[in-house]
């Protein structure tokens, strides 16, 4: 679920990426979002130092999905002591690629007039799910057959108090599309597809036992 977000894709609440004590008084917190097909890095800068901060810039290290700022970091005014400013930085996925561990790790450098600071953050994979990730049913069936068993992983999702239609709607607003739903011996089996920004498809099966809050995703 997402606070205050009955529709639209899920946005994780902002967390502190760089505490002020590690960055000469600059505190950076943020989150990632996908809005209308655009990936955005929502960042809050707070000046906890005694001096004014100016000349901000941001740079990403190469990363698994080529995330890169699509525009320079623009802070409208210098940041006075105790001032906070919020910025939404649009991101592209055409930057340099290097496989990271974990896959969704992003290393960031931020500079201001005082120094250069570095931090890492983990972005949620749903920001990479594109709007045209609904696979044709025939293609889905053929592709599913071709997936080697080594490429299948299974996870338990605990404590989810939603029925399969609610789950399906919530996932669809995150570009995870339900291709088919079948009821076998009382349990709902949902077949779903999604496509990453780099063109890689993911196929999923979600098993929901009515009355049980524990799901199995393969």
């Amino acid at each position: 679920s997402g606070v205050g977000m009955p529709t639209g894709s899920y946005v994780v609440p902002k967390t502190v990426w760089l505490p002020a004590m590690k960055a000469k008084g600059l505190e950076i917190s943020g989150t990632f979002a996908r809005r209308m097909g655009t990936i955005q890095m929502d960042v809050t800068f707070t000046n906890k130092a005694m001096q004014i901060m100016t000349d901000f810039a941001i740079q990403f290290n190469r990363n698994s999905f080529g995330l890169s700022p699509a525009a320079p970091l623009q802070l409208a005014t210098p940041l006075s002591p105790n001032q906070t400013i919020e910025v939404s930085l649009p991101l592209s996925t055409v930057g340099p690629v290097m496989k990271m561990d974990p896959l969704n790790n992003l290393q960031v450098a931020v500079k201001n007039n005082i120094d250069v600071f570095y931090f890492s953050s983990l972005y949620p994979i749903n920001i990479l799910f594109v709007e045209d990730g609904k696979m044709e049913r025939q293609v889905f069936l053929a592709t599913w057959k071709d997936i080697p068993s080594d490429n299948e992983a299974q996870f338990q999702i605990k404590d989810c108090h939603l029925n399969s239609d609610a789950v399906s709607n919530k996932l669809q607003s995150n570009n995870i599309f339900t291709i088919a739903k079948r009821n076998v011996e009382g349990q709902d089996m949902l077949y779903q597809s999604m496509k990453l920004t780099n063109g890689i498809w993911i196929l999923a099966e979600l098993r929901i036992q009515p009355g049980s809050p524990n799901f199995t995703v393969s």
């Binding site: 049913r137 025939q138 069936l141 599913w144 291709i179 079948r182 076998v184 011996e185 089996m189 077949y191």
Partner: peptide, 20 residues
Amino acid sequence: EIDDGLDEAFSRLAESRNNP
């Protein structure tokens, strides 16, 4: 909806996954 045989194919898939 046109019966393209895919409905049946998904039913078979779900059943085979349930009883491998």
